[in-house]
Every structure is written in C-alpha cells, then in structure tokens.
Amino acid sequence: MLILVIGLVVFFCVHSVRLFAPNWRETSMGQGKNGVMRWHMRFGLLTLLATAFIVMGYMQMRVEPIWLWFPPVWTRHLAGLLVLVALFFVGSALVPNTSMKQKMGYPLLIGIKIWAFAHLISNGTVADVMIFGSFLVWSIVSFAVYRRRDRKTGVVYVTSDESSVPSNLLAFVFAMISWFTIVFYLHEAVIGVSPLV
C-alpha cells in the first residue's frame, strides 16, 4: 500500500501546481527553449515515476485484495460505455477547436471525472477506491478552481459553431480508436486485467 500512496502523492503534487501557484510554472520555465524543455522533462519524469509507483502498488495490492463491496456485473458494461465517453472528452481536449473545449474549457478534467467514476462503480477493493476515488476528487476540485479563476478573469465560453464539426469528428475517431486499443490490448498488457472478462 505504501508504494501506491507514494505514487498518488507524487502524481497529484506534480499535477496540482497550477491549483495553488498559478504562475509558478511560467516562472520556473524562465525564458527560452531550454527552460521550457527542462520543465517538460522534469514534469514528464516525475509523472512517469509516479505512474510506475501507482501501477506497482496496485499490482501488489491485487495479490491479496481487500474488498469493500462486490459490484454487480452490469457495472462493468456501464463502465465500458462511460470510458468511451471519457475518451471523447480527452480527444476534445487534444484536438483544437472542439465544441467541448469551447463550451467547458477543460474537457480533459471532465474526461478524468467520468473515467474515475466508471472505474469506481465497477471495482470494489481498497486499492480501487484509493486510486479512482482520489482521481475523481482531484478532477472535481481542479475543474471547480479553474472555472472560478476563469470567471474572475472574465473568460467567456461560447457555444460551438459549424467550424467545430470536423474537430468533433476527429475527437470521436480518437475516442473510438483509443477505446478499442485499451479494451482489446492495452488494459490487459499494462494492468493485467482484461475489461472483457
């Protein structure tokens, strides 16, 4: 459990800098490409290290799982559908000029919310609650803080127009390809559990 906790703490500390110190990232980058590159390298290495700890800790806790509840089978099917929706929001964050980005500003955080909720309802061990519960809380808090800051600074979110249709289609294609890749290969390869079982 300690490895999992360390991984989660490092991950959320790294990804919460903008919540508590909005300008610290830009200050740390400094000027020039070298500063930006160093920042991204450090950020990426810490994220990779934290993710590795989370996966290792989760795998250790799966050996002797502590069950809090036993989710019914239908929650797995619902989770599969919700993850597809979550991936669409992730695609909407990656692709420029999508409707979700124009309307909500932070579709990636919405995607993380849905992803975490989907896994939380379909898994019932302590490790699952630690991982997906913490991601759900973090994404909810982050979304609320960023939207509040936007309101204070006068950021206005607009309704989508016809120019966003190609971007929305690209986000949908991203979601479908990612979903099939995860369901049929990546999830089992990385986590050791097939969503199809």
Rank of each mutant, 00 (worst) to 15 (best):
A127M: 10
V129H: 10
S92F: 01
G91M: 12
G124A: 08
D128H: 11
Q102W: 04
V90H: 07
G105F: 07
K103Y: 09
K103W: 12
T98R: 09
L81P: 14
G91E: 09
I114N: 07
F88D: 01
N123P: 03
I131A: 03
W115L: 01
F89A: 02
F89V: 01
A118T: 09
P96C: 06
W115T: 00
S122N: 03
F88Y: 14
N123Y: 06
A116Q: 02
L87K: 04
M130F: 13
A79E: 09
H119E: 02
L94Y: 14
S99C: 11
N123W: 00
I114Q: 03
L109N: 03
L78T: 09
L108V: 12
T75H: 13
H119T: 01
A79I: 00
V129Q: 12
I110D: 03
M104D: 04
M100A: 15
P96W: 10
N97P: 04
K101R: 15
L81A: 14
K113V: 12
A118K: 12
A93Y: 15
N123T: 11
N97E: 10
L78W: 14
V90C: 03
L109W: 05
G91H: 15
I114D: 12
A86D: 14
S92Y: 01
L82Q: 06
V129S: 11
G91I: 04
V83M: 10
F89P: 02
W115M: 04
W115G: 01
I131Q: 02
N123G: 13
I110P: 01
H119W: 08
P96Q: 07
A86Y: 13
T125P: 08
P96H: 09
W115H: 03
K113I: 03
A93F: 15
F117V: 02
Q102A: 12
V126C: 04
L108F: 10
